[in-house]
């Protein structure tokens, strides 16, 4: 049975992909390399990981509002996340998801999701569905 996590719809659209999950807040400006999509924020638990093609799950954003533009640029260059799942949406990430047109849901307990899980994000309904847990596919 897939696990359904209810949240709040922020930005519409449906997509599925592998989850990339962090416990740390993320600043897109200075925290993600705009050329490669690699997370470069110091002491971040995803440091070195690439956000491209992943469903990026993290508590919330922090830092400069220029971060919204970085998210747009990553997506436009094809190295951005497919969708975003937050615990508590903040203005920088929300504006980034809006201008980049990336599905986004918040109000989700992201500790239920593990990196590598195959998940579906439904930005219209505000839902995250865990379709396949990492352990069962390895």
């Amino acid at each position: 049975m897939p696990i359904v996590l209810k949240g709040r719809p922020i930005m519409g659209g449906r997509t599925r992909g592998r989850a990339l999950v962090s416990k740390d807040p993320l600043s897109f400006l200075g925290g993600v390399d705009p050329e490669t999509g690699r997370i470069i924020e110091k002491n971040h638990d995803l440091n070195g990981e690439k956000v491209g093609g992943a469903i990026l799950c993290f508590p919330h954003g922090h830092g400069s509002t220029v971060g919204s533009y970085v998210l747009y640029s990553l997506v436009r260059r094809g190295i951005g996340p497919k969708a975003i799942v937050n615990e508590k949406a903040d203005p920088v990430v929300v504006v980034g998801a809006v201008i980049a047109d990336v599905p986004m849901v918040d109000g989700v307990d992201i500790s239920k999701i593990r990196t590598g899980d195959l998940i579906e994000v439904n930005g219209d309904e505000g839902m995250v569905i865990i379709l396949e847990e990492r352990s069962s596919c390895t």
Partner: peptide
Amino acid sequence: ISGVSYKTIGDASIDFL
């Protein structure tokens, strides 16, 4: 409007603007 200096906003912002 803030986000004008190329030093602070970089290339990413130019795409959107």
